[in-house]
C-alpha cells in the first residue's frame, strides 16, 4: 500500500489528468478531421520547450507553456506558408513542419546543455511518469489526509489539474461557437463568428494539452492521448455531450490503468520486471478503440458510421 502511494498514485493521477486535458480538444480535432494537427502539436512543441528552458533555465512554469504555444503558432504559420508556397496539401505541409520542428528540438537538446539537466531526448520521446514519486507517502496511508505530506506532492500534479481546469472552462464558455464553426464554418463565418480565431484557439488549447501530456508520456505517445479516447467515444455515441463525457472516462481508464498495468502487470504474470507506463497507456487506449470498432462493426447499420453523402439513409432509432 505504502509503495503504491509512493510510486503509483501520483503517476496514475497525472496520467489521468493529462489524458483528460488532451481528450477535450481531441474531441474537436476528430470532428474537424484534423487529427494530424494533434500529431503536429504533439511534436512541434518540443523546440518551444527547449527554447523556454534555455532562456529561463527551468523545465516548468509559465515559460514552458508560453514556449509551447509560441512553437504551436510558429508551426501553424509554417504549415500555411508551405501549403501556399509549395502548393502542397495541408497534411503534407504539416508532416514537413512537425518533423522539421521536432528534429530542430532534438538537435537543440543535444547541442545545448539542456539534455544534462532535466530534459533529455529519451524523456522527450517516452515521457517521465515513473519519476513522479511521492516521498512523503513513505509514512503510510496517513499521508493521504496529512496536509503537510501534500506539500511534498510533485508539482506536476497541481499543474496538470490547473491545465485541465483551464481547458474545461474554456470549452464550457466557448462550446457553442466552437461547435458552430466546426460543423459549418461557412455558415459560422457569415453569421459573424471569428472562424479563424476559433481555429487558432483550438490549436492553442491543443498545444497546451500537448505540453501537459508531453511531460507525462512524451511526444510520441501524446498523439494517442489527443486522439484515441475521443475517436473511441465517437464510435460509441452520436451525441456530442455524451461523446465528450465518454472520452474523459476512457482517458481516465487508459491513463490510470496504463500506469497500473505498466507497473504491476508483468509482476502479476510472474515476471520480474515492469514496462513503460506511457507505452501501456497507449496500448490500453488502442485496445479500447479496437473493442469499440468491433462492437460498431457488429451493430450495422448505425448512424455513427459515415453515411453516404447523397441519397436517403436508413433511419435507425437510437439505442436506449
Amino acid at each position: 500500500m505504502t509503495e503504491f502511494l509512493m510510486l503509483s498514485l501520483v503517476p496514475m493521477l497525472v496520467a489521468a489528468l493529462a489524458a483528460c486535458a488532451c481528450a477535450l480538444p481531441g474531441n474537436f480535432l476528430i470532428l474537424r478531421r484534423q487529427a494530424m494537427l494533434g500529431d503536429m502539436m504533439a511534436h512541434a512543441v518540443l523546440p518551444g520547450l527547449v527554447t523556454a528552458f534555455l532562456i529561463t533555465g527551468r523545465v516548468e512554469g509559465a515559460a514552458v507553456y508560453a514556449g509551447a504555444v509560441g512553437a504551436a503558432l510558429l508551426a501553424a504559420g509554417m504549415t500555411e506558408t508551405i501549403t501556399r508556397l509549395a502548393r502542397l496539401d495541408p497534411g503534407a505541409a504539416m508532416g514537413i513542419t512537425f518533423t522539421t520542428l521536432f528534429a530542430a528540438g532534438v538537435v537543440l537538446l543535444e547541442t545545448t546543455g539542456a539534455s544534462e539537466v532535466h530534459l533529455d531526448v529519451e524523456h522527450a520521446l517516452y515521457g517521465n511518469l515513473e519519476s513522479l514519486v511521492w516521498l512523503e507517502a513513505a509514512a503510510g496511508p496517513g499521508a493521504l489526509t496529512d496536509p503537510a505530506a501534500w506539500a511534498g506532492l510533485p508539482p506536476e500534479l497541481p499543474r496538470m489539474a490547473l491545465i485541465l481546469a483551464g481547458l474545461a472552462l474554456a470549452l464550457a464558455l466557448f462550446r457553442r461557437p466552437l461547435v458552430m464553426a466546426s460543423f459549418d464554418p461557412i455558415h459560422a463565418a457569415v453569421a459573424g463568428l471569428p472562424v479563424r480565431l476559433i481555429s487558432t484557439g483550438l490549436m492553442v488549447a491543443t498545444a497546451l494539452a500537448a505540453v501537459a501530456a508531453f511531460a507525462a508520456v512524451g511526444s510520441i505517445l501524446t498523439i494517442a492521448m489527443l486522439i484515441v479516447p475521443a475517436a473511441t467515444a465517437r464510435l460509441l455515441t452520436d451525441r456530442l455531450p455524451r461523446q465528450i463525457g465518454l472520452s474523459l472516462l476512457l482517458a481516465i481508464l487508459a491513463g490510470a490503468g496504463g500506469v497500473v498495468l505498466g507497473g504491476y502487470g508483468p509482476l502479476w504474470l510472474g515476471l520480474g520486471f515492469s514496462v513503460s507506463a506511457s507505452g501501456m497507456i497507449a496500448v490500453l487506449a488502442g485496445g479500447m478503440l479496437a473493442l469499440a470498432a468491433i462492437r460498431q462493426g457488429r451493430s450495422t447499420p448505425s448512424p455513427a458510421r459515415p453515411l453516404p453523402k447523397t441519397g436517403p439513409a436508413p433511419y435507425k432509432p437510437p439505442m436506449s
Binding site: 470532428l31 460543423f183 452520436d238 451525441r239 447523397t310
Partner: peptide, 10 residues
C-alpha cells in the same frame, strides 16, 4: 454538400 453530415449533432 458543404458540411459533414456525420457530425454528432441533432
Amino acid at each position: 454538400a458543404a458540411v459533414d453530415w456525420d457530425f454528432p449533432v441533432r
